[in-house]
């Protein structure tokens, strides 16, 4: 036992009488005062810590409820147990049907549209700059749209672009604005969302995971491109006012 351990054990009263007496004899006056101070300090510290934290009542009630639930399940009869297993299986089947359906509804806006015809028919707003400007304003989006029949992607490829109109779609409790294009004969949808929203997060995540063609931030908005045709340059048609 080194001197520090001896000191600590003495403070805790863990030394035998002989050891304690021997230790006391070896103390200088300064050490003695230090020990007294430390004993008082630790008593205070212990008291402070003991009184400053209590288990929050809601937490304790939750834990007790879980224990009671566990106890109930454990002591249910075999019949009950089979009943519970049956109910769980039914719930599992229902969940396996309902959850994917709900998720599909939340991610459908990230899937490419099958045909140009479907896109045309679904437009809420015609391919008119003024109408689209009003539409964007009604969604509190300070964005401008540039119209162009062609847009160059690379030196070797220029896209043929026709604007088909705009629409809005619900995604959970939020809305996403969609600008619809015919890009080189393929349906292309530019998604618009305010940043820091669930929709914006989904767009950015889908882009990172390469489930959509591209995404970018335009001021305080996030835009994304959904198409089977690779034309990220389409996103440059959207600018902030």
């Amino acid at each position: 036992m080194d001197r520090d351990e001896l000191r600590s054990a003495y403070l805790d009263g863990e030394l035998s009488v002989t050891e304690a007496l021997a230790y006391e004899k070896s103390l200088t006056e300064q050490e003695c005062a230090g020990l007294i101070a430390e004993r008082r300090f630790e008593a205070s510290l212990g008291e402070t810590i003991r009184s400053d934290i209590r288990c929050p009542d809601p937490l304790w009630h939750r834990v007790k409820a879980r224990i009671r639930d566990e106890h109930r399940v454990r002591f249910m009869g075999v019949g009950w147990r089979w009943g519970a297993i049956g109910a769980a299986a039914t719930a599992l089947v229902l969940i396996s049907i309902i959850v994917p359906e709900a998720l599909r509804g939340q991610t459908a806006f990230l899937e490419p549209v099958a045909s140009l015809e479907a896109l045309r028919q679904d437009a809420d707003v015609p391919a008119d700059l003024n109408a689209v400007a009003h539409f964007l304003a009604s969604h509190k989006m300070a964005l401008t749209l540039r119209m162009t029949p062609t847009i160059r992607e690379t030196d070797s490829h220029t896209h043929q672009v026709t604007f088909l109109g705009a629409r809005e779609r619900k995604v959970g409790s939020e809305k996403v604005v969609q600008l619809m294009y015919n890009c080189c004969g393929t349906p292309a949808v530019v998604l618009l969302s305010h940043q820091n929203t669930e929709v914006a997060d989904r767009i950015l995540r889908a882009s990172r995971e390469q489930r959509i063609q591209a995404s970018r931030r335009v001021g305080s908005y996030v835009v994304g491109l959904v198409s089977k045709h690779h034309a990220p340059v389409l996103l440059r048609l959207v600018g902030q006012t």
């Binding site: 230090g34 101070a37 008082r40 300090f41 008593a43 205070s44 510290l45």
Partner: peptide, 11 residues
């Protein structure tokens, strides 16, 4: 090792 004269006040 600080000398602590008044543990409560110090804490």
């Amino acid at each position: 090792e600080a000398a602590i004269e008044d543990p409560d006040a110090f804490l």
